[in-house]
């Protein structure tokens, strides 16, 4: 569950600092919208294709990224073809594909831990009213809680299956929420006991 979407390879893109990659991505997306047109989009498409090749991503990675969006993109294509024309429909759908793939380049070449470290490192420069320690704690705690919630969920489902209630979402969610809230309260005590404030 907690394996990230990182694709292992050694490339210049893998070695670039996460902050720079995110900055370039934001700039790239903005440019595509500000200078709207086939020329910019084509240039953008070539740039993304180059980055994909450079970072060692294979065709199956590209397919895997776009697959979840296929149905909604198809719907948009049909609506646009009907409302305007096929050329315009292709433009809109192609732009989505370029945007999503550009983001994939960043995601696939940056580990989650690097990204999180990047966020925390960036926090050092944040103004003093930003609760840096609390943000860092929140991120770590969430990663710690996901497997915990899943295991409680598993327990509760087994207990409710014994009573024939395992398809009843309310019967699953109430014990899950109450039990994890109690855990959370004790975790807060434990954090306090370990001198965090």
């Amino acid at each position: 569950m907690l394996t990230d979407l990182y694709i292992f390879a050694d490339s210049p893109l893998h070695r670039t600092r996460p902050g720079i990659k995110i900055g370039v991505l934001v700039l790239f997306c903005t440019l595509l919208f500000v200078f709207e047109g086939w020329v910019t989009l084509a240039l953008g498409g070539v740039a993304v294709a180059l980055c994909l090749a450079l970072s060692g991503l294979r065709a199956r990675h590209v397919v895997a990224t776009l697959r979840p969006a296929v149905w909604i993109l198809l719907a948009i294509f049909l609506v646009q073809s009907y409302l305007v024309d096929i050329l315009f429909a292709s433009f809109v759908v192609f732009r989505f594909a370029v945007l999503i793939l550009a983001a994939t380049v960043v995601t696939a070449t940056t580990r989650t831990s690097e990204m999180v470290d990047g966020i925390l490192a960036g926090l050092q420069f944040a103004p003093s009213w930003v609760p840096k320690n609390q943000i860092a704690l929140g991120v770590s705690l969430c990663l710690r809680f996901i497997p915990l919630v899943l295991s409680v969920f598993h327990d509760v489902r087994q207990a409710q299956r014994a009573r024939g209630l395992d398809r009843n979402l309310t019967a699953l969610l109430v014990p899950l929420v109450v039990r994890t809230l109690k855990t959370a309260d004790e975790v807060a005590q434990a954090i306090h006991a370990r001198s965090f404030d």
């Binding site: 609390q134 704690l137 929140g138 991120v139 705690l141 996901i146 919630v149 899943l150 807060a188 404030d197």
Partner: peptide
């Protein structure tokens, strides 16, 4: 926002994820 609040925030982020 106290420590207890941070813990609840993290918990619900985890519940949504789960």
């Amino acid at each position: 926002l106290e420590t207890r609040d941070v813990v609840f925030i993290a918990l619900f982020a985890a519940i949504v994820a789960s």
